[in-house]
Amino acid sequence: MSITKRLMYVNRRAPYGTIYALESLEVVLIGAAFEQDVSLAFVDDGVYQLVKGQNTTGIGVKNFSPAYAALGDYDVKKIYIEKESLDQRGLSMDDLQHLTWEDENEDYAEKESMHLVSREELADLLEEQDVVFSF
């Protein structure tokens, strides 16, 4: 498919309480094959998806948090975290997984995927999209 569109996935749900976070990630991973201009935004309870140290053994549910680390391999390297959402929840970037991607044009140098953005910056980014996915 020759058209390239800007697709943003807006994640606003915490993991495990509902299936939305997991099934959204499945869409992102499948969607990566379409080679579009993809970004992810983590807003509201969505920021909890990226919290480090998730351990699901006691609830009998698969821990899917390691899968986020693979996003870079799928060429998904624009990940935006809304600062206001972190602040409201008493979190900082240090509480979240550190996601990176490898730049094959620079000898596979590890580059930052995570971008902390203000509400104004996120509002601008939303306005630049062709399609906004919400689940």
């Binding site: 939303l126 999209q129 062709d130 399609v131 906004v132 919400s134």
Partner: peptide, 10 residues
């Protein structure tokens, strides 16, 4: 149709 995109805040 009139707007450029639709963003559903579910």
């Amino acid at each position: 149709a009139e707007h450029d995109r639709v963003n559903a805040w579910l």
